[in-house]
Write a protein that binds this DNA or RNA. Structure first.
Lengths: 187, 187
DNA sequence: ACCTGAACACCGTTCAAGT
DNA sequence: ACCTGAACACCGTTCAAGT
């Protein structure tokens, strides 16, 4: 109950940041969505930087949990790799939104240090997961697959960005398919 | 003389937008760089939207010219493809900046319609050029290479974005190399 | 514990007025 | 033609005051 507003702020801030970035986050709109005054948000988060870092932290934690669940429920690594792009697809399906990490990567120059750290962790856990799954798929070590894991992460991010710029989720699907044809992603 | 300020504004705005995006563009800073008051900028560009569109238009025009020059000076399509990523590399080398089109793609929701149009043209001319060069390289038609051309554009954009988030141009080079290994880019 | 009203400093933007 | 001063609206933040 007492933490309801805190959670609601985190959720609203996540949605807003995926659509308008860190610089587009503003406490007045957030307060309106949550149903409290903007000043009240400072009771839960001492500054915008703190809120941004909390949102980014929660974002990679949720993603990490989801990736682990996927791997647990579907131990076949090839299937996991095939389904990985669905993660980014869902943001597009949800109001043509971008990965939080991508948007904030663009905003690198204006990001408070703690926020930078958290979005780097998002990339780190994604790449680590991809490396692990690639390794399981081809019987080598995760270290040997780090380069391809990073390439997949970067390429999928780029596909999402391009699709967003046209508000065209079909373009995303086409790009992912092209990555498979080219051999960047396993068919 | 009279157009000096106009050109200086365009140049300063381009640099700023590649570092802080359209939303990060601000007339006070721009005026300071150019040496006039922020209000004076409105004489040259009736609104921020107009300035943004003008910057984006100039950006794709310059890029289109550069790509055509490259193709004219180095008719070997394989060499052109090998050098294509240098375009994005240069933005990173220039103060860890992002492609204007990428930043504004992230900002899609808050972009005035004319700005959207111009950055889509940037993607269009890039993809068209890549399709043309790919076709010349493998003896088919540009249409048959559209999918791969778009995939290359998206992937290279993603690599630049990821490298920016670490301020690590070496990561960009590694990612491009991984694309080559995977077969997305010709070796 | 949790929230608000009111205020402050700052900044993007506008526009009537200058030369 | 080109520029500016002054004002407006907005936003992040603070804080004393409410319950």
């Amino acid at each position: 109950m007492s933490s309801n507003h805190r959670e609601a702020i985190l959720a609203a801030a996540k949605d807003a940041a995926q659509a308008r970035g860190y610089s587009g986050l503003n406490f007045r709109d957030l307060g309106e969505v949550v149903g409290i005054k903007s000043a009240s948000i400072y009771y839960h988060f001492p500054s915008k930087a703190d809120l941004g870092a909390a949102v980014a932290r929660r974002y990679w934690q949720d993603t990490a949990a989801e990736l682990e669940t996927m791997l647990a429920e579907m131990p076949d690594p090839a299937s996991c790799l095939r389904r990985y792009p669905e993660l980014f697809r869902r943001s597009l399906a949800n109001g043509n939104r971008l990965c939080l990490c991508s948007f904030m990567s663009a905003e690198f120059d204006d990001l408070p240090e703690p926020v930078k750290t958290e979005i780097q962790t998002f990339a780190d856990i994604s790449v680590a997961w991809l490396g692990k799954v690639l390794a399981a798929a081809n019987g080598s070590s995760p270290e040997d697959n780090q380069a391809q894991a990073r390439a997949i992460f970067a390429a999928v991010s780029g596909a999402q960005l391009m699709a967003r710029s046209r508000a065209d989720i079909g373009l995303y699907d086409t790009l992912i398919e092209s990555y498979r044809v080219a051999g960047l992603l396993p068919a």
